[in-house]
C-alpha cells in the first residue's frame, strides 16, 4: 500500500525517535528513568511549598503550581525534542546528510522525532498528575472536568510547541558547538514567562508583557481551568477573561508563532544547505 511522503516521514521518524529514546536500556530502567526525573522536579516544588506554607496543600496556589509544572513537561519534551533531533542526527549519529538526500519531508521528519518525545512526556505528565491526585491533595473531579476544552487546548498546545521546536531546529541547523543549549535556554525562559509555577503578577511589571505574548501562558491557563476550574480563577492574572476568549488568544498566538517558526525554519534550512552545514559536525 502506498502512503504519502509526508505521513511516511512523520511515522518513521516517530518510530525511530521512540527506539532511540527507549532501547538504550531494559524496560524497567527506562520506566524508572521516565518517572524519577519528572517526579523529582515536581517534588522540589512540593517541598518548597510545604516548607513555606507548613503543609497547607489545600490552598489554590498548590494545584496552580503543581499542574503548571506537570504540563510544562511537554515543553521540554516536544519543543526541545524536535530541535534536539538536529543535534542527534548531525553531531552524534552523523546521519542528517542521509536524511536530507532521502525521499522524505525534512520538517515532518523532525516533527516526527518530537512525536516520540511526546509519548514519553505524556507518561511523565500522567504519572506526575496521578501522584498529585493520590498523595498531595490535588483535587481533580473527573465528572467536573471540561474534557472538550482540555483535549482541544492540549492538542493545539502540542502542535504549537512542535512548531516552535521546528524554529529552534532551524536555529540549531545554522549554529555550531551548542548541543542542546538553545532548546534548554528557551524552555527555561518560557518556564518563567509563561507563569507555569507562579502567577504572572509575581513578575516585575515590566516583564509581564513578555508573558502575555507567549502562547504557553494561555495554554497552561486553559489546561488548569479545564481540570480545576475554580482554582485557576483564584488568581487575577487572566481571571477577567472567559475560557473562550483565552482559547481565541491562544489559537491566534499559536498561528502567529507557527507561521513565524515555519518561515524561520525555511530560511535556516536554505542557509544550511547553501553553506554546507548539513553534515558539518562541531561537537564530537
Amino acid at each position: 500500500m502506498q502512503t504519502s511522503t509526508s505521513w511516511r516521514s512523520f511515522r518513521m521518524a516517530a518510530w525511530l525517535g521512540w527506539v532511540i529514546e527507549s532501547n538504550w536500556t531494559d524496560p524497567f530502567l527506562f520506566a524508572v528513568y521516565s518517572i524519577v526525573k519528572p517526579l523529582s522536579g515536581a517534588a522540589i516544588l512540593v517541598i518548597m511549598y510545604g516548607v513555606i506554607t507548613e503543609g497547607n496543600f489545600g490552598s489554590a496556589l498548590f494545584p496552580y503550581i503543581y499542574l503548571g509544572n506537570a504540563f510544562y513537561i511537554y515543553v521540554g519534551a516536544v519543543m526541545t525534542g524536535v530541535s534536539w533531533a538536529v543535534v542527534d542526527d548531525r553531531e552524534l549519529y552523523k546521519t542528517l546528510k542521509y536524511m536530507y538526500i532521502a525521499p522524505i519531508n525534512i520538517p515532518l521528519y523532525l516533527l516526527g522525532r518530537g512525536g516520540a518525545r511526546f509519548v514519553v512526556g505524556s507518561i511523565a505528565v500522567l504519572i506526575t498528575i496521578l501522584t498529585g491526585v493520590f498523595f498531595l491533595n490535588v483535587k481533580i473531579n473527573l465528572a467536573e472536568v471540561n474534557w472538550g476544552l482540555f483535549f482541544v487546548s492540549l492538542t493545539i498546545g502540542i502542535i504549537m510547541l512542535a512548531l516552535i521546536g521546528l524554529m529552534l531546529a532551524g536555529f540549531t541547523l545554522v549554529t555550531a558547538r551548542h548541543e542542546g543549549f538553545i532548546g534548554e535556554a528557551v524552555a527555561a525562559a518560557l518556564y518563567i514567562f509563561s507563569g507555569a509555577v507562579f502567577p504572572l503578577d509575581v513578575l516585575p511589571e515590566w516583564l509581564r508583557p513578555v508573558g502575555y505574548f507567549m502562547p504557553t501562558t494561555y495554554w497552561l491557563e486553559l489546561l488548569r481551568r479545564s481540570l480545576v476550574g475554580e482554582v485557576a480563577n483564584a488568581f487575577p492574572t487572566l481571571s477577567q477573561f472567559s475560557n473562550l476568549e483565552i482559547l481565541g488568544v491562544m489559537i491566534g498566538l499559536s498561528i502567529l508563532f507557527g507561521l513565524v517558526s515555519i518561515w524561520i525554519f525555511k530560511i535556516c534550512d536554505h542557509i544550511a544547505r547553501e553553506n554546507g552545514m548539513i553534515d558539518r559536525t562541531t561537537n564530537y
Partner: peptide, 26 residues
Amino acid sequence: SWVLFEILLPMFAVCTYVFVYRALNA
C-alpha cells in the same frame, strides 16, 4: 556562547525558584 549559556541556564533556574518563593511570601 558557552560561557553565556552556562551562566544563563542557572540564572533562569534561580529566577524561577525565587519567583515561586515570592508567590508563597517566603
